[in-house]
Design a protein around this nucleic acid. Structure first.
Lengths: 248, 248
DNA sequence: TCAAAAGTGTTTAGGATACACCCATGC
DNA sequence: GCATGGGTGTATCCTAAACACTTTTGA
């Protein structure tokens, strides 16, 4: 489990031989459905053992000549088409016996999982249905039982996503180039939950920071006053790198 | 490099066979020498290729039946004796060709490194000198050239340590059970650098939070007014878990 | 008695929070 | 006109930050 550890030493293995590993990559791919205020995660139905017919995170084993990150992009590209995304490494799970395959089809080969988390734009993400395999967005508040330790990975990814939003401009990787302040607010509010600042304060704070440039263009969406479109100005954001809680 | 990534997809490997891995664990072990206000990191001199006679992080390869964390504790215990420590996983580096051994002595075996970072109490840490191997504390501000990508790992570990201090009670894992507020302040100031709050404000803030219990015991260290010894009250800290910036 | 370290208090400026309120549009 | 969402302003409270000051010890 990620996080804090405090433990006694256990050095009693003597001089065991080295373990041989296959390395897997599992992706926790999130998106935000702003129309329904839901945070979603991409799950795929497994069609082979172990955990046949369970939902799980899209994953793959790393191939020769392929970097970990390459593998993460490959499996992502096999499941959805997106133009914009944010991706970063999460955590590496590697205890012995975490994967049932270790006991059966192998001579002591261990399976290690490097997990990645990604954020993609829901509206532009096209799921790739290959005819057989189930693939679907699930609300993180209402998940089925998952294969392996994928619920742990997901919980950890969710926590990381919330933290990221608070200090880094990930949101803009996933918003269209031009967006309204409510778009931005919706995204924050649905990811961070309800005990989040109110709209007018969020608005005032962000505008004051000065890295959102007003395009003067208005857009009308149904009823109500038309909203101004803004653009994220990466240069103007530079001074805020490494500063905590920019967005709170 | 850890952190943000945004990149085009590269799926052009066709159906390569899976890669076989050996998995290494590298530890960035930090400690704080409060008497000299320096943040230190533990380095060992390498006595074999690759990078013969370079300094590097203490590391080892994972053995059969051993978890990643077990391996991290094992290598740590081989180098120093400590009673208290904090240890957590950092990042996994696993691109092809990051380790020179991949090209020579193996048939396509890849080397992957899972890095851990640890914080130990400087005063109680006893280096284990095995006669031959060099092993030493180096100030992070003044490092020699390191083997592999160990400088990257270290830089990342340092960043993580600074963040941890700001919201989590790691400091108390590494302070004696009873400590003075200056002890605590020194630790924060030397890790976080000089643009840190002044002593009196730090003091006032922490006491107000209410998870430091006054033991009423005074201790005199040379000249100056004797200091009060405090104890960290984990229960009283509970409400602050998951709250950002508790300590700065 | 003086330097050194611990501990207290005060002042000020900026930001978070909670609102009340005005504006522009579709129907 | 009126509901709907966008946008502005203001009063209050709190805390960060800077700094002056007092207390208690060893030498």
């Amino acid at each position: 489990m990620p996080g804090r550890t405090q433990r006694k030493f256990t050095d009693s293995l003597g001089k065991q031989p080295l373990a041989d590993f296959k390395v897997g990559v599992d992706n926790a791919i999130f998106s935000v459905d702003t129309s329904q205020n839901r945070l979603l995660v991409l799950l795929v139905m497994r069609h082979q053992e172990p955990f046949l017919n369970y939902w799980g995170l899209p994953g793959t084993l790393v191939r020769q000549g392929e970097s970990l990150e390459d593998a993460a992009y490959r499996i992502l590209a096999e499941k959805i088409k997106v133009k914009n995304l944010y991706l970063e490494q999460l955590y590496t799970f590697g205890g012995p016996n975490r994967d049932p395959r270790e006991s059966v089809d192998s001579f002591g080969v261990r399976y290690l999982s490097v997990s990645y988390f990604a954020l993609v734009r829901f509206e532009e993400a096209e799921l790739i249905a290959d005819g057989v395999s189930g693939i679907a967005w699930y609300p993180v508040k209402d998940l089925p039982q998952l294969a392996f330790d994928h619920s742990d990975i997901l919980a950890y990814g969710h926590r990381r996503l919330k933290n990221k939003l608070e200090y880094s401009p990930v949101a803009f990787e996933v918003l269209p180039e031009l967006f309204t302040l409510s778009d931005l607010y919706q995204l924050y509010a649905t990811v961070l939950g309800d005990n989040f600042a109110d709209y007018s304060n969020f608005r005032a704070r962000l505008l004051k920071l000065g890295f959102l440039s007003d395009t003067k263009v208005k857009v009308s969406r149904g009823a109500g006053r038309p909203a101004t479109l803004y653009r994220f100005d990466a240069e103007a954001f530079a001074p805020f790198k490494d500063k905590p809680l920019v967005f709170i």
